[in-house]
Amino acid sequence: MAFFLSLAALIPLDNPGHYIHWHFLDLSVANLIVVILMVCTFIAALLLPFPGRSRRKENR
């Protein structure tokens, strides 16, 4: 039990959140970070080279 007590959140996010207002747009910073990360991950997945290409070629 003591082990999991020590696992209580290091940076709990229980404090009131921050929000971005822009016209009718009203996004929590936490959600905005999730969305930005999602878009970045998608772009990175398209652009980053996938390993194992040379091995693939040899096997062809």
Partner: peptide
Amino acid sequence: PVYVSSWIYVF
């Protein structure tokens, strides 16, 4: 198939 070579496939 060899065209399956992108990080997008891991999602």
